[in-house]
């Protein structure tokens, strides 16, 4: 086994709302990423993907609160550190996060290079502007971004260019782990492809050692990450290799998600998309048994009695459902035969 770069055990975090309600958006999440690997996180809107990303950085501010669990980045246990220390020595250096609408967060009145200077000097005020420029130029060029971009204002850049600039800036301090939250969802397909190529490039040249990629677009994850984790209502419901997650999903929810894939490939028009009926449960008060049971066509009364544990079934695969693996496969095969 390779060196584990990110090791998360039983991480639970919650939002405390204005009305003092607890929203359990990340509930007992464990994950490991080895050096050189990438992990995709999928799941429908509101399942807690962005909250997990925020939580992984170990830097909490209201309304988000840490409850329990451990986060170990390259041997450093950051869950026990003081917020100030996390901000100074972890963010950007060990773990970097590109939030969901990062490209719109660039200051419109600042040239890119000034923003870069701010980022670097926030961590080390002794670095000269000249050194920063040289370093940024080298980084940008190695990632296929023209150095002229550094002299531009955000409005002068297209959406795709802005997003790639944000990604380049986020790896300036050579973090071990990069978390990219929907980095390409707002872009058209060509710009999206450029962003993906750049992220893959970052891994290949070793600027980052591990990556977490968040999106609800499964074909994208399939092409970008080694493994895929499916979240539902704050919990992991399935972990598998990208291939297995797409072609051999076990959890009925993951199975449902795979049914919503749209790709311009022959045969798509004759397959019917399978929408999952209903909506996810309210995280203020999630059901005590299986959280998906209410929407699951295979659910039986036992499903709703007690919390369902995540079952490890070897090869890094795991799923959270009371049905045994072979029974699930049998049910899916039977259904496929009926449709054919």
């Amino acid at each position: 086994m390779n060196r584990v770069i990110l090791d998360v055990r039983g991480l639970t975090t919650k939002y405390i709302t204005r009305y003092r309600e607890n929203v359990y958006a990340v509930d007992g999440v464990s994950l490991q990423i080895e050096e050189g690997k990438s992990l995709g996180i999928a799941g429908e809107s509101g399942c807690g993907k962005s909250t997990l990303a925020l939580s992984l950085m170990g830097y909490y501010f209201p309304p988000l609160h840490y409850t329990s669990g451990e986060i170990i980045i390259d041997g450093i246990n950051i869950s026990k550190m003081k917020p100030d220390d996390v901000r100074k020595s972890i963010l950007g250096r060990e773990i970097a996060y590109i939030p969901q609408s990062a490209m719109n967060a660039l200051n419109p009145t600042q040239r890119i290079i000034n923003f870069v200077e701010d980022v670097v000097q926030a961590h080390d005020s002794s670095v000269s502007k000249k050194a920063i420029y040289e370093k940024a130029k080298e980084l940008f060029e190695s990632l296929g971004l023209p150095a002229e971009v550094l002299h531009k204002y955000p409005v002068e850049l297209s959406g795709g260019m802005k997003q790639r600039t944000v990604i380049a800036i986020s790896v300036l301090l050579l973090p071990q782990v990069l978390i990219a939250d929907e980095p390409s969802s707002a872009l058209d397909v060509t710009s999206q492809k450029m962003v993906i190529k750049m992220l893959r490039n970052l891994m290949e040249i070793g600027y980052i050692k591990a990556m977490i990629f968040i999106t609800h677009e499964l074909p994208l994850l399939y092409n970008v990450t080694d493994d895929i984790m499916v979240m539902y209502a704050g919990q992991i419901v399935e972990k598998a290799s990208a291939h297995d997650a797409v072609f051999d999903p076990l959890h009925p929810y993951s199975k449902g998600l795979m049914g919503s894939i749209i790709v311009p490939e022959e045969g798509l028009r004759s397959t019917k998309l399978t929408a999952i009926p209903g909506v996810p449960p309210n995280l203020k008060n999630p059901p005590s048994g299986c959280r998906f049971a209410e929407r699951c066509k295979y659910a039986k009364p036992e499903c709703t009695v007690t919390a369902i544990p995540l079952r490890e079934i070897g090869n890094g695969r795991a799923y959270r459902c009371i049905f045994p693996e072979d029974e699930l496969r049998r049910m899916y095969a039977k259904e496929a035969a009926q449709h054919a």
Binding site: K197, N223, I261, V263, P264
Partner: peptide, 18 residues
């Protein structure tokens, strides 16, 4: 090009075109 830029699951997604 538009078609080739969409990530696929059955065919190889060629990143060299961008």
């Amino acid at each position: 090009r538009l078609i080739s830029d969409v990530p696929k699951i059955y065919e190889e997604w060629d990143l060299s075109t961008v």
